[in-house]
Design a binder for these strands. Sequence first.
DNA 1: ATACTATTTGCGACAATGTCGCATCTGAGA
DNA 2: TCTCAGATGCGACATTGTCGCAAATAGTAT
Lengths: 150, 150
Amino acid sequence: MASAPHLLNALKERNVRLTRQRRVVLDALAVSGNHVRAEDLLREGRKRDPNLDRATVYRTLAMLKEHGLIDELDLLHLDGRGHYYEMRGHQDHVHIGCTECGRVTELHSPIVQALLDEVASHTGFRATSARIEVQARCPECAGGNAREQR
Amino acid sequence: MASAPHLLNALKERNVRLTRQRRVVLDALAVSGNHVRAEDLLREGRKRDPNLDRATVYRTLAMLKEHGLIDELDLLHLDGRGHYYEMRGHQDHVHIGCTECGRVTELHSPIVQALLDEVASHTGFRATSARIEVQARCPECAGGNAREQR
DNA sequence: ATACTATTTGCGACAATGTCGCATCTGAGA
DNA sequence: TCTCAGATGCGACATTGTCGCAAATAGTAT
Ligand SMILES: [Zn+2]
Ligand SMILES: [Zn+2]
Ligand SMILES: [Zn+2]
Ligand SMILES: [Zn+2]
């Protein structure tokens, strides 16, 4: 439990009401890895509160997103039409998805910040977050023609 | 009409069958500005072919995307849950959406290419396209309210 | 021009994902 | 403990996208 102390504290500071259900969703977020779908969170959360409702999960995700505490991705819809969520870390990173095998890799790079600076200086928009999703072929799929499974 | 000669030629070169419906969708794409939703294309396309079907539009979009001729965006879902399409130009660019007024701006920058190079050298993934969507507050919306950033 | 055939289309039924109104419930401060 | 603004559960709904299959058709060959 309390597996997401950072988020819990952030919500307290912002005077967001801490309901049992919200704690459950936060726990589910912490337990699941990155790139979780809403339905996964619902299933995971119901292990702790079997009455947890689909709408509550969506409403909680929307709230967390508004507060900038999670990011929403769709990983280029390489697999289905849903969206994915992950807790926001210290800095934005790049998501790279292979169009053939579906593998997703992350890359942290200072160039991301450089890009945001460029955005600010050229357009005057002050960025609050960035989503960078690169479509690619991974070394395995590009090299041999070995078919991987997903 | 032939309002999208570039796409038409690309399809011919690839021996993709040029049906009446596909021409209609291409025309609709050319007539509509950037950031068009599938349903917009359906409505626009039906002006030319009233029997144009929803499934055909989606199938055509999927085909164009597979050939790398269009990009799919969701503009951070600042407005609804749908996705947007635009013809691919010579190089990828950055989409910047204001979280308050919803205005979307584009930015072309050499840093995008630098980022893709970084991806290649660090991960070995060979990028075929990049989607960069920045969430921000535009100068007008930021002006009135100097509030916390993050 | 006509015939041929692999592809594509329209259609309808369906699945997945997300949203909303409203009655009820509850977290958190007093 | 009391109180009530705000959160939840529920169900009904909307949107967005998908699929199988019979019928139509683009491109090619004759
Ligand atoms: Zn990630
Ligand atoms: Zn999306
Ligand atoms: Zn791969
Ligand atoms: Zn704005």
